[in-house]
Simulated assay, not measured.
Amino acid sequence: MYVTEREKLKDKKRIVIKIGSSSLTHAYTGDLNLMKIEKLVRVISDLKGQGKQVVLVSSGAIAAGRQALGHHTRPVTISEKQAFAAVGQARLMMVYQKLFAEYNQIAAQVLLTKNTMVNDSSRYNAQNTFDELL
């Protein structure tokens, strides 16, 4: 018998969703696609309503920053990417906060790096943060 992906998730308590920039932006312009983001938030809110613990791993900070700063081309240098990400991360979180609030959900941000994962103390602290949030 064929089991769909949705059926596999039915009995799971915790779901991690990884969404890339291309899924959050308009293909032609690279600007944030608010309708897609709103749909994602609606699905996550519905999963939470079913009693699931949901973690969203989201890209999109560079794209959001590029849009906010009015640049029409993709950044090339590391410094451009970092500048766009610095502006875009705040903007992307603002979008998520606003949309999740419309569904009576609370959004939180946890920034993780490779060092967080390889350092025992940092990894322990990150795990405790997720445990508290979930």
Results as ranks from 00 to 15, higher is better:
25 T>H: 11
113 T>W: 02
3 V>D: 02
59 S>A: 03
118 V>F: 06
22 S>Q: 08
103 Y>V: 01
66 R>E: 08
32 L>G: 06
32 L>D: 07
2 Y>H: 06
132 E>G: 04
118 V>D: 03
76 V>H: 12
132 E>H: 11
131 D>I: 13
124 Y>D: 13
100 F>W: 08
112 L>Y: 11
127 Q>E: 09
36 K>I: 06
128 N>E: 13
60 G>R: 01
12 K>I: 01
78 I>M: 14
131 D>Q: 14
1 M>S: 14
56 L>H: 07
86 A>H: 03
55 V>T: 13
116 T>E: 03
4 T>R: 13
89 Q>G: 12
90 A>C: 14
104 N>L: 05
83 A>H: 05
102 E>K: 12
27 A>E: 13
114 K>C: 05
3 V>F: 11
36 K>V: 05
109 Q>G: 02
112 L>S: 08
18 K>E: 04
43 V>I: 08
38 E>F: 07
87 V>Y: 01
87 V>P: 05
51 G>C: 08
121 S>D: 14
21 S>H: 08
107 A>V: 11
90 A>W: 04
130 F>Y: 10
47 L>M: 06
116 T>C: 13
24 L>G: 10
31 D>C: 06
4 T>V: 06
28 Y>R: 14
4 T>N: 10
26 H>G: 04
60 G>F: 00
122 S>V: 00
78 I>D: 05
105 Q>G: 00
98 K>Y: 07
27 A>G: 05
42 R>N: 12
128 N>S: 03
123 R>V: 02
134 L>H: 04
123 R>G: 01
131 D>L: 12
109 Q>M: 12
134 L>F: 15
110 V>I: 15
109 Q>Y: 03
60 G>E: 03
51 G>F: 04
115 N>A: 08
118 V>Q: 06
78 I>T: 12
16 V>I: 15
87 V>I: 15
79 S>V: 13
8 K>S: 07
47 L>C: 01
57 V>A: 10
28 Y>V: 12
69 L>I: 04
69 L>C: 05
5 E>M: 07
80 E>A: 03
30 G>N: 00
80 E>N: 01
108 A>S: 15
95 V>C: 10
94 M>T: 13
119 N>D: 15
57 V>M: 09
74 R>Y: 10
78 I>V: 15
